[in-house]
Nucleic acid binder design. Structure first.
Lengths: 182, 182
DNA sequence: GATTATATATATCAAACTGATATACATGCG
DNA sequence: CGCATGTATATCAGTTTGATATATATAATC
């Protein structure tokens, strides 16, 4: 999927700045996709010059200026058209896997070359990290308005539920099988 | 982790060609890590000129020539040193997440802009794909000698078990919750 | 029997992307 | 009062990908 379509799709959920789009990739979307600043900012500028998004500059007191982007009608139409094409290529490609790079799994793969204590620390930190993630995905209490609106999206609640289920399985497996590594 | 350390680590499991390393990234390792030809071949050449691997050219009848790389003592020592450093940085970094780019999850995230039949096809293909993967990871019957040797590695059997558990959870969740998307 | 697609095998390179850095101001901490 | 951290945008060198080139064999399709 093109970076333009991804940014438009995120802006279709509500107006945001480039920095806030990056925060979504670091937070709720981090388990599924990510784009860096070096991609996001140029993409937003390109979308703006093509009139796919409009931009309002917010002069904030006590913080740097903020450029809040809103998707236009033209942007909405373009995004939906692109999305249809992407879904078709996805289906035709026959390549339904995800692109993953996991430093953790490389360390596990080569675990026999690591001292026992090092491996233990790696596993402990990973378990702690996954447990935190799990709590975040399960937490259903009060949140700020914009995040609440996001959670009411059917797609996001589906994804959150899946993430929680996978994290739970992963944690249980690690706790039951970690001694098999040493 | 540096690409050099990754290639050395894979070669520490047994001698292989660049093409066969890529096959591992497309097959058993595809859910955890991947490197492209454009990275693998130059890395092997660099490792060879640094004497971290040795290379035997196999002139095959009916197939192109094959360069089979074997890790040297120097390569083994370097790999273990690098691995220790990588484990330390992993622990120090506090960044225990994986780098993921999932076209599938983007399509789900923007599901409301897709026609129902398109979304259905995407979900069906993904389920079929995951089911195949699941069978591969669960399959414990007879396999060629080199793959059998790999499976006897503790780390690989740990990872295979985890992958199977995660795939099972993912499949169950998708089947039970997919109607919530439409 | 001819054409097309797929698989083995290495290598290269333009285009895309990342991650680090620059700039700038505010807040919190010891 | 200095130092680290957080907000915010922007750029760019270096890395990585994905496509392409080259070459041969087999399997499938027509």
């Amino acid at each position: 999927m093109q970076k333009e379509t991804i940014c438009l799709g995120i802006l279709s959920l509500g107006p945001r700045s480039g920095y806030e789009i990056k925060q979504m990739f670091q937070g709720p979307l981090s388990d599924f996709y990510s784009l860096s600043f070096g991609t996001i900012y140029p993409t937003l500028n390109k979308l703006q010059s093509g009139k796919f998004v409009s931009c309002k500059q917010h002069t904030q007191s006590k913080k740097p200026d903020k450029k809040v982007y809103t998707i236009t009608k033209k942007g909405m139409a373009q995004m939906q058209e692109n999305l249809l094409g992407d879904a078709s290529s996805y289906i035709r490609s026959g390549n339904y896997g995800d692109q993953i790079k996991s430093e953790f799994f490389l360390l596990i793969l080569f675990a026999k070359y690591l001292p026992k204590e090092t491996l233990d620390t790696v596993l402990n930190e990973r378990v702690l990290f996954l447990r935190q993630k799990f709590e975040q995905f399960k937490y259903d209490g009060p949140v700020p308005g914009d995040i609440k609106a996001l959670r009411e999206e059917k797609s996001i609640s589906f994804i959150r539920g899946l993430a929680a289920a996978l994290l739970d399985t992963g944690l249980n497996y690690m706790e039951k099988n970690r001694e098999k590594l040493s």
